[in-house]
Design a protein around this nucleic acid. Structure first.
Lengths: 265, 265
DNA sequence: AACGATTTGTTCGTATGTATC
DNA sequence: TGATACATACGAACAAATCGT
C-alpha cells in the first residue's frame, strides 16, 4: 500500500497536465469519466481533483466541469523607490503608472475613509499612545477589469487636526497623499520599511478578488514610512493575490529591465 | 438554505477559535464529538474541519486529533542591503548573522553542487546562450532545529573555467560566494533585483519543511545580481515557508528596529 | 421563459486502514 | 495489545449551477 488511490489518481492527472496532454484552460474529464477511467468511486476521484485544486493546478466550476488553471501573466510591481521620481513604489499613483507601462488598464475603486482607535500593530508602528485615533484610507485597484490589489493607509488623526484636512475626505488626493502631508505639515517621507508575508486569503479576499478558496495565496505588504527625523508618518497595508502579482525590489545599481514580464517568460 | 451545513460548522468552530475558546495548540473535539454536537454525520464535520485546515487555522494529526495551529514567532529577514557591510541580505552568511541577532540558533545543511544546462528562466536571467552550462549550489538552512529556508544559486559555468574553481566544490566558501567571485574574477556585485511571489508548496517542499499540505504558503524570492558593468553574475532562488518567515526591505533612510519581532507583537 | 440534460456540490451511511498512545 | 482518532474508500441520493433546446 504505497500511496492511497486518490493520490495515485491525482499524480497521474498532474502528470498529464504537466506533460501538456491537458492544456491550460481546458476541461478535465468529468467525474464520471474519471471514475470509469480509474475504476474508482466518484468520491475518490473527487478527492483526487481536490488535491489538485489545493495545489493551484485545477479549478472546478459547478455545472461546467474541472479545468486546468489558465496561465495569468503576472503584473510586476516595483516596490523599491524609483530612483528618478524618488517616490515609493506600489502606491496610488506609482501603481497606476506602472500598470500603464505594462500595457494594462488600471482603474481605482472607491476610496473609503474611516476613523478608528489605534490598535495593536497600527498603534505600535505609528508610535501612538493607547486611545489615539487614526485615519484609514482604503482603496481597491483593478487592472483590465479584474480586482488586483487592496490597500489601506493609516495616518495619525493628529495630522488632520494639525491641518491635513483632506486626509479625512473621501476623495483622491491627486498629487498623492505623501506629497500632500509633506506640503501641509512638513513631514517629508525619506524612507520606508516593508514587511512581506504570505497566507491563504480570508473570506473577504476570496469574495473581492474572486479567488478559489484553496490553491492561491495572497501577499501582504505592510509599509511604515518615516520622515527625516525618523518619525513614522504612515502605515500602509496592501494585499496582492499571488496569482497575478509579483513584487520587485531593486537594491543598489541595477540595470533597467529589458522588457515587460513577457520577455522573462 | 443559506450556507451548507459544513460551512456553518466551520464558521462556528472558527468563531470559537478566534474568540479564544479553543486556544492555540489545543485539541478540538474529536470528529465523533463534533458529530454529536452539531447533529451531523461524521463526513460532514470532517468537511468542516478540512475547510479550517485549508485556511491554515487547524492541523489534523492521525491518531491524535485536530489542533488549533500554534503561533509561530516569525523570523524577520532583511533582504535589502545592509548599509554597513554592503552585503546583500538573506544569503548564507548574512542570514546566519540575522538569525543569531534574533536569538535563534541557525544551522546550515549540506551543500549540493550540480551542473546543468541553462534552461528557461535561469538562462535568460544570466543572459546565457542555448546550451551554456551553469553551476547550481543548493543549500538548506535550519533555525532552532526546524527547516527554515532552501536556497539555490546559479552561476555561469564560464566562471569556473575562468578560475573560480571553488564554485564547483561542495564546500562552503567561508568568505561568501559573492566576495569569492569578486576576488577571483573581478566581478564585483553592485546591486540586485529581487522578484517575490507566493504559491502553495510543492510536494518536495511539503516533505522538507514538514508543512501541512494546505493552509501554508511559501514565499519564493528570485534574485539576479549584477556587477558594475550591469552584467548578471548570479541568479539565486530562495524558498521560505510563509508561516515562519517575514521578508523585510528597507528603502531610503529608515531608523533601526527597536527590537526583534517580539516587540512588534 | 421553461425544461431537461449535464456536471459539480452536499450529505449521509458504512466499512476498513493506519497512526498514536 | 487494545483503544482511540483520523484517513481512505465506496455507494447512494438529492441539491444547485450551467447550458442548450
Amino acid at each position: 500500500m504505497p500511496e492511497p488511490m486518490y493520490r495515485q489518481i491525482a499524480d497521474e492527472l498532474r502528470r498529464r497536465i504537466e506533460a501538456g496532454e491537458i492544456e491550460p484552460g481546458s476541461k478535465l474529464p468529468t467525474e464520471f469519466e474519471l471514475r470509469d477511467q480509474f475504476s474508482a468511486s466518484r468520491n475518490t476521484v473527487r478527492d483526487a481533483v481536490r488535491a489538485l485544486t489545493s495545489q493551484g493546478l485545477v479549478i472546478t466550476r459547478p455545472g461546467q466541469g474541472s479545468f486546468v488553471v489558465d496561465t495569468i501573466i503576472p503584473f510586476e510591481i516595483t516596490l523599491s523607490r524609483d530612483s528618478d521620481t524618488g517616490l515609493g513604489g506600489g502606491e496610488g499613483i506609482a501603481y497606476m503608472e506602472a500598470a500603464k507601462a505594462q500595457a494594462r488598464k488600471p482603474e481605482e475603486g472607491a476610496l473609503r475613509v474611516e476613523i478608528h482607535a489605534a490598535t495593536g500593530r497600527i498603534g505600535s508602528e505609528l508610535q501612538l499612545k493607547e486611545g489615539d485615533q487614526v485615519v484609514s484610507r482604503n482603496q481597491t485597484l483593478r487592472i483590465d477589469g479584474k480586482p488586483w490589489s487592496m490597500q489601506t493607509s493609516f495616518y495619525p488623526m493628529e495630522f488632520v487636526t494639525k491641518g491635513a484636512i483632506r486626509l479625512v475626505q473621501a476623495a483622491i488626493i491627486e498629487s498623492g497623499s505623501v506629497r500632500y502631508v509633506a506640503e501641509t505639515l512638513g513631514f517629508e517621507q525619506v524612507g520606508y520599511r516593508d514587511k512581506i508575508t504570505a497566507r491563504p486569503p480570508n473570506q473577504g479576499e476570496v469574495a473581492f478578488f474572486k479567488l478559489p478558496e484553496v490553491g492561491v495565496s495572497v501577499l501582504e505588504t505592510s509599509r511604515t514610512a518615516y520622515d527625516r527625523l525618523a518619525r513614522p508618518i504612515r502605515y500602509t497595508v496592501t494585499v496582492w493575490p499571488a496569482d497575478r502579482n509579483h513584487l520587485v525590489y531593486n537594491v543598489g545599481d541595477v540595470p533597467p529591465e529589458i522588457q515587460g514580464p513577457t520577455a522573462a517568460g
